[in-house]
Every structure is written in C-alpha cells, then in structure tokens.
C-alpha cells in the first residue's frame, strides 16, 4: 500500500470516520460529573484556589472575581478569538462571558471546574456572535455543515524537520490562522479546546455539551483537515518533489 497512489485512506476514510464514531460510542461512557468533586466539596476550599474564589464571590467579594478574571481572561480570549476570527467580536464576547458567569455564579454547582463552566458560557456566546455576524452578512448557514472534505489524507510528503523555521514568526502565525479559519466552527472549537488549550477530552465534551465520542470524531477530522492544509506550506521540498515525480510516473 505504501507504493499505491490512492491508498486505502482515500477509499476508506469516510467509512473510517463512521467506524471511529461507532467505536468511541461503543466504549463505556466516562461520567463527566467528576465524582471526586463530592470529596472536594466536603473539604474547605483554599481561599485563593478556584473554588475558594468562587465562594468568596458568592459572599459578595468582587475582588475575588477580579482574581478569577485575571486567572482566565487570556485563555478565554484566545478561545473566542479562534471561534469568531474577529478581534472586536472576541473582546465583546470575553466581556459578555465573564459578566454572564458573574451574574449566574450561584448556578455553578461545582460538578466541573469553574474554568470548564466558564468556557462553556464563552463558547456559546462566541458561536452566537458568529451566527449573528453570518446572518447579518446573509452568508449561507451551509458553511456550518460538517464536512468530510480534507479529512481524507491525500498528502503523503513528509514535512521539513523544523517546519516553523521555514518562515518568520509572523508569517508562520498567518499560515496557522489561515489554516484554522478554513475549518468549520464546530471542528475549530474542538481542536482549540483540546489541542491548543489542552483541556481533556472529557472537559472538552463537558464544555461543549457533547458526548466523548462526538468530541473524538470531530477532533480526528479537525486534525486531519489542518494537517492537509498545512502540508502545502511545511512539506519538505525534496520529499514533495519525489512524491510529484512518483505521481507523474504512475
């Protein structure tokens, strides 16, 4: 198969994605309502730890909320900027999300980390902003449809050992932004939470109100689509030439 032009990837990738989803779905579901929290809730929280700060906010300490904002604002800003792809929208969403979390902090039950709960609010606000922007520009909502396109590996040239060194840092950043912008928002969001912000699969599922199999399925497609998009910038020149020559010969 290593020498064939259209390997089993091309024929079987759609089936692979479906089988992957079934396989993940067949696994025992991980209970997201972390049992350890029950133990944590019976212990006096550290005053400057996340739960301690939440308790202080509930008791009316606005400075404690300031500490929570400073703890998470940069991460939330990155996430919503990735989703909205618009800096001004991201600034609005960050403010709205923190305000909403503050207003509803009594509804936070401690079944997840405060950060995961905050991310859920921020992601919902960001997706809502995105929908409003698209509606106002009368762009078709078909753009939101999850697509298999790009999830099928077609590019088999290896990359340069240090691909980032092929470009300046600003150019690299532009390439990465351009590639991720092309993903459907649902894929983009899963990739950012899981791979960029390093949330666990379970936390990502909790933040997005998705099942673990759905997160894994979207993550696989997002990773493969991004890989495909980046390949044209980062592939090793010699390997690319060899692959092209092989294709011509066949």
């Amino acid at each position: 198969m290593a020498n064939s032009r259209r390997p089993a990837h091309a024929n079987g990738a759609n089936a692979a994605a479906r089988m992957a989803h079934r396989k993940f779905a067949a696994r025992p579901r991980i209970h997201c309502d972390f049992p350890i929290m029950a133990t944590i809730q019976n212990v006096q929280p550290e005053p400057d730890g996340e739960l301690g700060l939440v308790e202080r906010v509930r008791a009316g300490d606005i400075d404690a909320y300031g500490q929570l904002v400073r703890m998470y604002d940069r991460r939330v800003f990155r996430i919503v900027n990735h989703i909205t792809q618009n800096r001004e929208d991201a600034e609005d969403v960050v403010q709205d999300a923190f305000l909403k979390a503050y207003q509803n902090i009594d509804r936070f039950q401690g079944n997840s980390k405060f950060y995961t709960w905050l991310v859920r609010i921020a992601v919902n606000e960001a997706l809502m902003k995105l929908r409003k922007r698209k509606t106002s520009r009368t762009v078709s909502m078909d753009d939101e449809v999850e697509t298999e396109e790009g999830s099928i590996p077609r590019e088999f040239a290896d990359w340069s050992p240090n691909p980032e060194q092929m470009y300046g840092s600003e150019e690299t950043a532009d390439i990465l932004k351009k590639a991720i912008q092309g993903l459907p928002p649902n894929f983009r969001t899963v990739f950012v939470l899981r791979d960029v912000e390093n949330l666990s699969t379970e936390e990502t599922a909790q933040a997005l109100e998705l099942s673990v199999p759905a997160v894994k399925s979207r993550l696989l497609r997002a990773r493969l689509q991004l890989r495909e998009r980046l390949a044209k910038y980062f592939k090793s020149p010699t390997d690319a030439a060899a692959t092209q020559a092989q294709a011509v010969a066949q």
Partner: peptide
Amino acid sequence: VTTRKTIQIYRDNQLYDM
C-alpha cells in the same frame, strides 16, 4: 508524524495573545 507536528505547531505558537 505530520498530524503530531500539526498539533505541536499550534501549541508552540499561541495565536491571539492579549
């Protein structure tokens, strides 16, 4: 290998820092 590099590149280059 290249999918692993994809993830690593996004982790190493934090976009949209404030």
